[in-house]
Amino acid sequence: MRRAILAVTATVAGLVALLSFKTHSSSERTVASPEPAASLPPGERAITGNVANTAYGPVQVQVVVATSKIVKVNVLEQPESTEHDLQIGQFAFPKLIGETLSAQSARIDSVSGATYTSGGYIKSLQSALDNGA
């Protein structure tokens, strides 16, 4: 459960960081249909994160967990009103989801790297770990 929350936090943080590169604001959005819980194989369950309200629209992700390991990440909600939004949807979201799974599968407790500032901490993997507990 703790790992699942970590991954959700990391993904949302990554998405928010990515979206903040955009140069326009939009309130338009589309909402994908969440995978019905009933369709999950036995032993798997879906955990839906809170909606993160970015300046460019709401973002929401869902993780599918099997025996405390994330097996899938779904993006439930993302801005999708411009070419840039579509690029994010087609390229960056899958990449960020892949990174979430990569860090999660490594089962790490802490991260060593070049010293971050107080501001840099917010975007760090360590921050995601700290928020996951």
Binding site: S102, A106, L125
Partner: peptide, 18 residues
């Protein structure tokens, strides 16, 4: 404890785990 070593060339990823 598993301490990830941040990959300096690919932010957000790990180079290895100690």
């Amino acid at each position: 404890w598993r301490v990830g070593i941040a990959d300096p060339l690919r932010p957000g990823r790990l180079a290895l785990v100690v």
